Simulated scan of single mutants.
Amino acid sequence: MRGSLVSLVVALVVTAHPTMSVGQRASGKDLLRAVMTKDVDAARIRDLLSEGADIDARDEAGRTALLIATHDNRIAVARALIEAGADVNAKDRIDDSPYLYAGAHGHLEILKMTLAHGADVKSTNRYGGTALIPASERGHVDTVRTLIEAGVDVDHVNNLGWTALLEAIILGDGGERHQRIVGFLVKAGADVNLADRDGVKPLQHARSRGYREIEAILASAGAR
């Protein structure tokens, strides 16, 4: 009779956790493999975490499950990980973190979640830039506004000697998105006369590229 009861309990455990052997706990590798599966859902992530998977385990590139999910802008999976306590500032081997990557690539919903869960707005990428700088360059209007509101330093200078304002002009296309971003940066107090390493100021860069609308925004803010 006792043996029958033990067998029944074992059967119930195996049924409840079909991917695990009896007495086995989920590992960080299990979580990483799951997140790399494009059709994995948030429920499966939560199951693996409840089974003991290391939430901040890293793959060979130093990426956590959250960073992998952020790469593909998988919002539901990222939310499940963040709400369970995943480190939004954990960097991989090339100094990307979920926060920095979401900001640079305009993954706005994930970015907002990282900001609500302790993102380090002073952290920098491999180019020595804050999340605001690539977001400005790439024309992610709502992302730029969100990062400014979060308190990112608008005059931070990266390893190239460029601020967010300079990158928006030098690497932007001068179109409506970059005009709006320049306007946001100026309104937030960006130094419109802060030159690059060659002594070239934002207004000069705008003029040389024929970005008349941006030139007007800068001139009205006192750019020389």
Results as ranks from 00 to 15, higher is better:
Leu8Glu: 04
Ala11Pro: 00
Leu12Glu: 09
Thr15Gln: 12
Thr15Phe: 13
Ala16Asn: 04
Pro18Arg: 13
Met20Val: 00
Ser21Phe: 12
Val22Lys: 04
Gly23Asp: 09
Lys29Asn: 12
Thr37Trp: 09
Lys38Ala: 12
Lys38His: 07
Asp39Pro: 00
Ala43Ile: 02
Arg46Gln: 07
Arg46Asp: 12
Leu49Trp: 03
Ser50Pro: 00
Glu51Arg: 11
Ile55Asp: 03
Ala57Glu: 04
Ala57Lys: 06
Glu60Asn: 06
Ala61Val: 05
Gly62Phe: 11
Arg63Met: 15
Leu66Phe: 06
Ala69Asn: 01
Asp72Pro: 00
Asp72Thr: 00
Asn73Lys: 06
Ile75Glu: 15
Leu81Arg: 02
Ile82Gln: 05
Ala84Asn: 02
Gly85Glu: 11
Ala86Thr: 05
Lys91Gln: 10
Lys91Leu: 10
Ile94Val: 14
Asp95Ala: 13
Ala102Val: 03
Ala104Gln: 09
Ala104Asn: 03
His105Leu: 13
Gly106Ser: 14
His107Tyr: 15
Glu109His: 10
Leu111Asn: 04
His117Asn: 13
His117Ser: 14
Thr124Arg: 05
Asn125Asp: 15
Arg126Phe: 15
Gly128Gln: 15
Ala131Cys: 08
Arg138Trp: 15
Arg138Gly: 05
Thr143Gly: 11
Arg145Glu: 14
Arg145Ser: 10
Leu147Gly: 06
Gly151Asp: 10
Asp153Met: 14
Val157Asn: 01
Asn158Arg: 06
Asn158Thr: 07
Leu160Glu: 10
Gly161Leu: 13
Trp162Tyr: 15
Trp162Val: 05
Thr163Trp: 11
Thr163Lys: 06
Leu166Glu: 02
Leu166Pro: 01
Glu167Ile: 03
Ile170Thr: 01
Gly172Ile: 09
Gly175Gln: 08
Glu176Lys: 08
His178Lys: 06
Arg180Val: 08
Arg180Phe: 10
Leu185Val: 05
Gly189Phe: 08
Asp191Leu: 01
Arg197Met: 12
Gly199Cys: 08
Lys201Gly: 06
Leu203Gly: 02
Ser208Gly: 10
Arg209Gln: 13
Gly210Phe: 05
Tyr211Leu: 05
Arg212Leu: 15
Glu213Thr: 08
Leu218His: 03
Ala219Leu: 14
